Amino acid sequence: MLRLVRLLQLASPALPVGAYTYSQGLEWAVESGAVTDEATAARWIGDALSYTLARLEAPLTAALLAAWRTGDDARVSELNADFNASRETMELRAETVQMGWSLLRLLSELDAFAGLPGWRDRLVAVNEPAFPTVWTAAAAAWGIAAEQALTAYLWMWLENQVMAAVKAIPLGQSAGQRLLATLGKRIPGLAAEAASLPEPQWSNFSPGLAITSSLHETQYTRLFRS
C-alpha cells in the first residue's frame, strides 16, 4: 500500500512543481472563443488527451520508466532530448523544464530513494531534465508498477487541464467533476495503448495546439504561463 501512497503523492495537485500555473494553450482557446463552456472544454481537453498526450508523452513516459529501471542512462538522455525537442513553442518547453527542475529540487529533500541507486547524480547528468524524466525517476525509485504509473500520469495531466478550464472559462466545480468523470473513462484504454505503442508510431502532430500555444505567448492578459 505504500507504493499506492507514493503514487498518489506523485499525482497530487499539491505537488509543488507549479503545474497549476500552466494551461498548455487552453487559456488562449478560451480567449479566442473556441472554448466557451463545458461541452467545448470536453472536446478540447479530450482531443489533446487522445491525440497528443496519449500518442507521444505517454508512451515516452513508459519508455523512460523502463530505462530508469534497467539502468540505461543513455536511453534516458535520448528520450529526454526527444521530449524537449517535441515542445513546439518556447513556453511549452519552458514549462516542462521548469517543472522538471522543481520536482528534482523537491525529491532532493525527500529521503525515499533507496530503490534507485545514484538517482540524483543520474538525473543531474541529464541535460535540462524534463518533467516526465524526473517524474519517472521517482516512480522507478518507489517501485510503482508501469501500468499504474502511466494511468496516474495521464490522470494528473487531465486534472490540471480541467482545473485550468474551471478557472479560465470559468466553470463551476460540479462541471469540472463531470469533465473528470467523462474524460477519465478514456484513461485506462489510452494508458494500455500507450504502453505498447511502437516508437516509430509516436506522434504529437497537432498544428492547432501549437498555433494556440504560440498565440498565447503574446496574449495581452493571462492567468497562466502557457
Rank of each mutant, 00 (worst) to 15 (best):
L2M: 12
Y20P: 00
T21Q: 12
T21V: 09
Q24R: 03
Q24W: 07
V30M: 09
T36F: 04
E38L: 12
E38W: 09
R43V: 11
D47S: 10
S50E: 15
A54W: 09
L56I: 14
A63D: 06
A66N: 01
A66E: 08
A67P: 00
W68A: 03
R69H: 02
N80D: 12
N80V: 14
A81L: 11
F83C: 04
N84E: 15
R87W: 13
R87Y: 09
E88V: 07
R93E: 15
T96A: 05
V97F: 06
M99G: 01
M99C: 08
G100N: 14
L103M: 14
R105G: 02
S108D: 11
L110F: 14
D111H: 14
L116D: 03
L116V: 11
P117N: 15
G118K: 13
R120L: 15
N127F: 12
N127G: 02
E128D: 10
E128P: 00
A141I: 05
A145V: 03
A146M: 07
Q148I: 03
A149F: 04
T151D: 11
A152Q: 01
A152M: 08
Y153W: 03
L154D: 03
W157R: 03
V166G: 00
I169E: 06
L171E: 13
G172W: 14
A175Q: 10
L179F: 11
L180W: 07
T182W: 10
L183R: 02
P188N: 15
G189R: 07
G189E: 14
L190F: 05
L190P: 01
L190Q: 02
L190H: 02
E193C: 04
A194Y: 07
S196D: 15
S196A: 08
E199I: 07
S206N: 15
S206G: 13
L209M: 05
T212Q: 04
S214Q: 13
Q219S: 04
Q219R: 10
Q219F: 09
F224A: 10
